[in-house]
Design a protein around this nucleic acid. Structure first.
Lengths: 235, 235
DNA sequence: CAGTGGTCTAGACCACCAC
DNA sequence: TGGTGGTCTAGACCACTGG
């Protein structure tokens, strides 16, 4: 039953990648070339490629081709290290790009979570993060300006955790986390330059101060193939 | 650009489901019927259905058809509640089925994680868990028999956390968690009765006793559309 | 048994990318 | 401009499900 042609193809490339005969970042031959080589139609080739994409072994760049996925980064949201530190420690190069920034009135949901009155100004921050020049994460954050006055005038493409520590003597401490494995919403897929409907990992995070006030609410949209989440629970 | 026919179909069903005009568990019309109704081929219909599946709105049963996905369960691995309690508290009916059970010598990896010598007997347990009769989770667990002698003679389709508490006066405490959003490996997909290559959430968990010994190592394979993970981090 | 989804063929046109 | 992936047609046969 699992002896279809696309499974054969899938296995073929999966073996090549695992044996490192196709290295991270390499471009695969075009769908038509693969089809000719294996005497199957493009439909069949694409079925195999899409499954490999779901496994996280390859990914596509819109109309440019298919590429071998680089290793995933290990991310521990509960550690107090910044994204930049993580990625660097794992031997890759991080980069952060600010896409938008705006002081805006808190909507009902944010206000309720932050325990502030609706309409209080909060800082909205929209960033894209890269590993080795590959965009892998979209962040949309709502930051409590009552606790961090003047933050909107800082350079917000740098590490927020460092900024909080150095300028405000604040640290990330308690947090509520939520994870969901699902297709990325179209806004996030567009920002990442991938086609809508691709699998992703959505993370919601509420950061609290040591006196239990809400510092920041994050919505993160990760490429599913770019991250493994690790958390240590210690009572 | 996002105005293709399959996106139109996708939107159509997505709206029906969100407006609850197609209720949880309902079977969709057959692919051929949908194709006729919208004057498109089955290829196009399937593209739309596969995207809806990636979004977690619908799921398939092998050669039986497409169905509207029921709401996801919220799961907190760090809470000390059992799976059964969770699911019941969220208004659904849990069920656990033991697929295999075996006392076997620890392999190198398990032995290292458990800090025992390779070949020491450990209890391997393989279970399938259901919500409202829908299989949503495969567990493969390795349990430290040094800490839980005689466990292999208990009924292992019941809640392990209750068993540990009542018979051994042990509780789950510290744990290391790892999450990865990726296609389910074929063994898990088969056990869940879904086609290989479907998206899923893989969880690895190492449970420690209060004196920091490894009680149990779990590998969990969830349907991606069946669960949202929530965790509270408190320093 | 009829009907379903699973797999596959052999084409086609389009939008976009790199050269 | 030639080649890429993205979308789509109009069929086909198969394996399996359900009555």
């Amino acid at each position: 039953m699992p002896n279809s042609q696309y499974r054969y193809l899938q296995r073929h490339f999966s073996d090549l990648i695992r044996d490192n005969k196709l290295k991270s970042g390499t471009k695969l031959p075009s769908e038509r070339e693969i089809g000719e080589a294996f005497k199957v139609t493009r439909v069949t080739v694409r079925q195999a490629l899409q499954n490999l994409e779901a496994e996280g072994l390859i990914y596509r760049q819109n109309r440019r081709g298919w590429f071998v996925t680089p290793p995933a980064v290990v991310y521990d949201p509960a550690s107090h290290l910044s994204f930049n530190r993580y990625v660097a420690e794992q031997g890759s190069t991080p980069h952060t790009e600010k896409l938008a920034q705006q002081v805006e009135p808190a909507n009902a949901k944010i206000a309720q979570l932050m325990c502030i009155t609706e309409g209080t100004p909060v800082l909205f921050l929209h960033r894209r993060r890269y590993i080795n020049l590959r965009p892998i994460l979209i962040e949309k954050m709502y930051i409590n300006l009552d606790l961090l006055p003047g933050l909107e005038n800082e350079d917000l493409s740098q590490s927020l955790s460092q900024l909080l520590q150095q300028k405000y003597q604040r640290e990330y401490r308690d947090m509520d986390l939520s994870f969901k494995s699902t297709a990325l919403p179209s806004h996030a897929a567009n920002d990442l330059g991938i086609s809508t409907g691709q699998a992703g990992l959505q993370v919601e995070r509420i950061n609290y101060t040591s006196d239990k006030k809400v510092l920041e609410i994050d919505y993160e949209f990760w490429r599913h193939d770019a991250v493994t989440i690790n958390i240590a629970i210690r009572d």
